[in-house]
Every structure is written in C-alpha cells, then in structure tokens.
Amino acid sequence: MVERLIPTALVEDNKFCPGCGHGIINRILAEVLDEMKLTDKAIGSMAVGCACLMVDTFGVDWIQSPHGRAAALATGIKRCRPENPVFTYQGDGDSMSIGFSETMYAALRNENITAILVNNGIFGMTGGQMAPTSLPGQKTVTSPMGRNTDLTGQPLNIINQMKDLNIGYLARGSVTSIKNINRVKKYIRNAFETQMSGGGYSMVEILSPCPTNWKMMPDKSLEHIDNTVTTYYPLGEFVKKGGDSNE
C-alpha cells in the first residue's frame, strides 16, 4: 500500500509549533489506532503541557488529568473498562518529573495500559524550563548557564528505571527520519498489541524536537537529536514479552 491518507482520528489541524515532533507522533498514533480499529474504543488520559493541545484535534475520548497523574487516571479507567484500549499521552515533564511516581507505579503494578511518553528534554508549554531529561550543559530558562548536574542530578533515563520491571513492552524511538518514524510506529503498534492481548504495561518513549524552546531551527533540532540526545537516550526495544507485531 502506498496510499497515505490522514487518519480519521486527526479531526482538526494540530496546534503545535512549527517543527514540533508532537505533530508527527500524533499522526503515527492515529494511524496505529485506525489500523488496529481501536479509534472508536480508545480512551486517552491526557497530560498537562503541550499534550493538552490535542484535546480538540485528536478524535478519541479524552480525560484531562492533573499534571503528572495521567497514569493514575488511566489506572482508574482501565480497571473499570478493561475491554477498552487505554493510553496516556504525556511529555517528559509531566511523566518523569511531577508524575514520576504515578508513571513508575503504573509500571510496577504492570497496569495493562499503554504510555506514550514524549521526551523533548524541556518543559515546553510553560516556556522552556529545565526538565529531568534536559542534557548536561543544556541551556534552558531555568538553567541559563547550562544544566549543572552537580546541582540538578543526571538526566533521567526512564527506560533504565523500567527495563528490569515485570512489564509487557518497553521501547524508545525518535522521529528524526523516515526510518526512525516508521520504527516508532512499529513500537506504538507493538505497545497497543501488548495491551490488547492483556500483556501488561507497555511504554514507548519518543525523542522529539522542540525547536521553539531549544531555540534551534527545525532541521537543526532533528540533527541535535541524532547527534547528541540519542547518546544519552539510546533507541531500541528493551522489553518485549509478546512476539513481533504482524504488521
């Protein structure tokens, strides 16, 4: 199939900044839901942050979570409605800073949900503050001299936190190239297939550009991910209890 049509879940133009990776990730997620015929059943637990901008543009049932609590809301939804695909869509600030506890405990309980964690190394919506995932030396509006790891600790690698847990699926991708985007799509599909087969917690972390707050041109942002960010956050599948997707 060469036909590439805008998936049905994308009901309006997105509201992200030029070059923002969320737009690509939204489309891949929508494609997977469409292809798996899950769009009509899916329930999303939405983070606070740039993810909020999806609420009118991404056409699945949404529940707006308080900042950081998306995984806890998803737990409540999934326990009550186990037949529905339930996912969180969160940035790194939401899922790994204020919501680190909720994110980790959903994984520790092996909740049968899918977490889409978008890592752009920064708090985007609030104006580019340092995130737990910001790189050493990274200049942000709250680390104007560059992130000092002596004072702020090392960047948080969520995959390392989760890879030894009893969970269903764990992967990290990026959206910097056709190859990487196709790979992320496969990861997201694997994640939802894990959930739909009752395989437990599935999480896909996606390295994504934030040209606006990185103060970088979009093309340079993609190069920055490939050349620098992935050295801290290697790509790949880290936990895969089920088989390959039959895509």
Binding site: L5, I6, N14, G23, S177
Partner: peptide
C-alpha cells in the same frame, strides 16, 4: 511521513 502538520496525502 515526516510532516508534523498533515500537509501531504
């Protein structure tokens, strides 16, 4: 595939 803004089909 690369477009974040659904410009192409």
């Amino acid at each position: 595939t690369i477009c974040p803004d659904y410009v192409f089909e």
